[in-house]
Nucleic acid binder design. Structure first.
Length: 836
RNA sequence: GCGGGUGUGGCGGAAUGGUAGACGCCGGGGACUUAAAAUCCCCUGAUCUUUUGAUCGUGCGGGUUCGAGUCCCGCCACCCGCACCA
């Protein structure tokens, strides 16, 4: 009855149904087992699953299955980040409703995911566009509003003229919209904001506890939050006003030779109103580009307002400029210029011939050393600064702060780069913001018993802009307070809001509340969160913020949502192009020897760089076709093999073929198991025990490539071994070790060996610690730092014995060639190094 | 400019300061077969050498050490993130 080949096309589906029918991966929160919440970033339902998804979810899947084998109750859910602009774009292009487009995509992608055999708890599946989900989100939004974490203000926003929507700061890249790539404009609109800045300090400090997050991500968030400490103080101006400035270097205050304000600073506006030249300079500043290259080369430009600022210590009048390098939205929008010790100020002062004084020197004796070419931004002692002379930079900062505070003209402060999160979007396909505008009562939250505020179905996308605003009746409602005519808010929430709390909804799904705090406590925090590095700042910071905000208002008792974060690399593929620069897909080309040609007409093709799979470069391989050809297990195995998971994985036809071969190799090995075989093969048994430990360690460290290599090694050894009880043990061990990675093959073998139940429910094999220890070791013998011979010795042999053994070697003697031995270093069980 | 990462065979990559190149892919040779597929076996860092073997070899230059891919100092290249943040 033995088949010579494993047939995934029949086995895969059969076992997927078996898991589903048995509810194998349904998480039970009432279980007394230790709990593991394994989560991969949920996908946007764009239409098709791509290889990046497959890699991401395969990693999480191996972890989830492994944890289950280790006796954990595992929550491994899946859902859909279903709001967003592509659905509206599709609506415009294809004349379909965003909802039906999204639903169809979800259905297709779910079927694709199921074909790969992921151990997911589909009973908890939801899409963020479900009214049940976004209704609860509206309720949380109102809770946050009532706690003072939501506010509304008129603000200059980043307006994307193509997508006709507002973008968050994080969505503006080099002055362009992150999706449309269009030049972003400034507009004033009434906007909803979340007070993420209230949590800036907490979010920063919290990073310190996230030991299992990549250093890189923590640093990116740290830089994004951007904490700086300094002195905020005011200059008295010659026009009678005060000019508040912020400086991180109050120690250099005696080196100040000018002040500068941003083009949109009130003082600049005031001067601009009466001086036409100032007004035109301000205009010029606004036109200046904001791309990296432009900023790099941008000349420091200023306009002298004629107003002067009185130095708080010397009383000297300092000219006040409008300058193009000062930003209104950082600090106070005004700075003191210290050319000697700030590079921008140095360039500015050089251009406008302002004094450049040295107030920090490497030593007191260097007080008069000229500053040439650039500002001195390093550490040193304070010079030419009256009462600060001789102090360290640190002491001088403290001293100036102290005097400013004592005399009441300044205060030590902390300034953050982080801005409040603007969440208003003038789009249809998002969570409606649950507020009502009443002429009499102002802005009123929708009463919770009227939630969810659902999106209308009858909308048109013929014209750009917000269909909710155009809808004839949807926004018309009664004021919950006075009952008078009122208007619904037509903005929807930024889609990042949807992904800021979905993990809580996975953990518990009551009908009448967003989640249940006790259930949440059972699962949270997520033990392993896996996804792309592209979410290092936006999604991960917002999710951290929501979690802390919900804790702050007493909804949950978790501060950090993700205990460990793993950012996996991309799936890449070679690119193919014709002479004219047009791209070809992998199935349009063929390799002839070392050259590539187009199959269709034999045209010469250039094989180019290996880059992320993308439609534009046509270097995409569709998972469905690969599964048809090789089965789910081969694809899963490929995703785990070779490349370390944090690095890019180059897809190759040869690679997947190799994986397909290995699936069959394992099949034959399993089928070669001879229950009647007897006898011990200690070396093989030892290898199996060692693999049990090593593979477990590798999986726990997410070093799947190493786990794969060890399984290959043990497989090779088992194949070569003669039948024995030990060999059968090794084969059964391999079956368990590969079961999280190749679950379909494992189940098929498991059932053919008449084991009861599913291997998915089986335990991780136990190892015998005594079997981990070798009784013979290979000793390397070195002379003159080079390997001369290797010899076998019993484990734990005495140093003297090893030395004698080494000297007895013919090869060693030849290398020594009669030289005098000065020293012999013996590392037990490892090596002998002879020094002459 | 600032911050971070990476650099090892033809390729992806292994390697608690202790035998560099595990494992996979590619390539070469052979077995089986009427033939092919499938499978199996052997070889596969470079140079020299008939073999035994020798020398070189982890981006570059120094250093520490009996011993360095690994630790230290100084460079180079590439990749990623941020960016006029006072």
């Amino acid at each position: 009855m033995t088949d010579t080949r494993f047939d995934p096309s029949s086995a895969d589906g059969r076992w997927q149904r078996a898991w589903s029918e048995a509810g194998t991966f349904t998480a039970d929160s009432s279980s007394s087992k230790p709990k593991s919440f394994i989560l991969e970033m949920f996908p946007y339902p764009s239409g098709r699953i791509h290889m990046g998804h497959v890699r991401n979810y395969t990693m999480g899947d191996v972890l989830a299955r492994y944890k289950k084998m280790r006796g954990h109750e595992v929550l491994h859910p899946m859902g859909w980040d279903a709001f967003g602009m592509p659905a509206e774009n599709a609506a415009m292009e294809k004349k379909v409703h965003p909802g039906s487009w999204t639903r169809a995509n979800i259905e297709a992608m779910k079927a694709q995911l199921q074909r790969i055999g992921f151990a997911l708890d589909w009973t908890r599946e939801f899409a963020t566009c479900d009214p049940e989900y976004y209704g609860h989100e509206q309720s949380l939004f109102i809770d946050m509003y009532e706690a003072g974490l939501v506010y509304r203000r008129s603000s200059e926003v980043n307006w994307d003229p193509v997508d006709m929507t507002v973008l968050a700061n994080e969505q503006v890249i080099d002055g362009k919209g992150w999706r449309s790539g269009a030049e972003v404009e400034k507009r004033k609109l009434d906007q909803w904001f979340l007070k993420i800045t209230d949590f800036a300090g907490e979010l920063l400090d919290g990073l310190g506890e996230l030991k299992d997050w990549p250093e890189k991500v923590r640093l990116m968030q740290e830089n994004w939050i951007g904490k700086s400490t300094g002195l905020e103080f005011s200059f008295e101006l010659s026009n009678g006003d005060k000019l508040p400035v912020y400086s991180t270097r109050p120690d250099t205050i005696f080196g100040a030779s000018f002040c500068a304000v941003a083009a949109d600073h009130p003082l600049a506006q005031q001067v601009g109103a009466s001086v036409p030249a100032a007004a035109s300079f301000i205009e010029e500043c606004k036109r200046g580009g904001t791309t990296a290259a432009e900023l790099e080369t941008a000349e420091k430009l200023g306009f002298d307002t004629g107003v002067t600022a009185k130095h708080p210590f010397t009383g000297e009048p300092l000219p006040v400029f409008i300058a193009n390098f000062v930003l209104m939205d950082y600090g106070t929008g005004a700075v003191m210029g210290v050319p000697g010790h700030d590079q921008r100020d140095f360039e500015f002062a050089t251009k406008y011939d302002l004094p450049i004084a040295r107030v920090v020197a490497s030593d007191v004796s260097e007080a008069d050393a000229p500053l040439e070419g650039e500002a001195a931004t390093g550490d040193g002692v304070i010079v030419n600064s009256d009462f600060l002379n001789g102090m360290s930079v640190e002491d001088a900062k403290a001293e100036v702060n102290k005097r400013a505070e004592a005399d009441g003209w300044g205060e030590g402060t902390t300034v953050w780069r982080l801005r409040d999160w603007g969440v208003s979007r003038q789009r249809y396909w998002g969570t409606p913001i649950p507020f009502i505008h009443c002429e009499a009562c102002g802005v009123v939250p929708v009463p919770k018993d009227q939630l969810p505020v659902t999106l209308p179905e009858d909308v048109d996308f013929e014209t750009p802009g917000n269909p909710l605003e155009r809808h004839p009746t949807w926004s018309k409602t009664a004021c919950p307070k006075c009952g008078g005519d009122a208007r619904r808010e037509t903005d929807t929430l930024d889609t990042f809001t949807n992904s800021s709390w979905y993990f809580l909804r996975f953990a518990s799904q009551p009908v009448d509340a967003p989640f249940d705090a006790e259930e949440v406590a059972k699962w949270m925090p997520v033990e392993h969160y896996i996804g792309g590095i592209e979410h290092a700042i936006l999604h991960l910071l917002y999710a951290r913020f929501w979690t802390r905000a919900l804790k702050h208002i007493g909804k949950i008792d978790v501060a950090e949502p993700f205990a460990a974060l793993f950012t996996q690399g991309m799936v890449t593929h070679e690119t193919y192009s014709l002479g004219d620069g047009s791209w070809l897909s992998p199935d349009e080309v063929r390799k002839n020897g070392s050259d590539w040609t187009r199959i269709e007409d034999g045209a010469s093709v250039t094989a180019g760089r290996v880059v992320k799979m993308s439609k534009s470069k046509k270097n995409v391989v569709d998972p469905d076709g690969i599964i048809d050809e090789y089965g789910a297990d081969a694809v899963r195995w490929f995703m785990l093999s070779d490349s370390p998971p944090e690095r890019d994985l180059p897809w190759s036809e040869a690679g997947i073929e190799g994986c397909g071969r290995f699936v069959q190799r394992l099949w034959r090995l399993f089928e070669s198991l001879d229950p009647a075989a007897s006898g011990e093969d200690k070396a093989l048994a030892r290898k199996a025990h060692q693999a049990i430990v090593a593979v477990a360690e590798d999986i726990e460290a997410l070093s799947f490539n190493k786990a794969v290599a060890r399984i290959y090694e043990l497989t090779g050894a088992a194949e070569k071994a003669a039948p024995s009880e030990s060999r059968n043990f090794a084969i059964r061990t391999i079956l368990h070790l590969v079961s999280p990675m190749m679950p379909h093959l494992a189940e098929e073998i498991w059932s053919r060996q008449n084991e009861s139940g599913l291997i998915a429910d089986a335990a991780w094999p136990t190892h015998d610690p005594a079997m981990l220890v070798e009784d013979e070791v290979t000793i390397a013998v070195q002379h003159k730092g080079k390997l001369r011979d290797t010899l076998t010795a019993p484990k734990g042999a005495a140093k003297e014995d090893l030395e004698a053994l080494a000297l007895a070697s013919e090869k060693v003697q030849r290398s020594l060639d009669g030289a005098e031995i000065r020293k012999v270093i013996v590392v037990p069980d490892r090596l002998v190094n002879i020094v002459t």
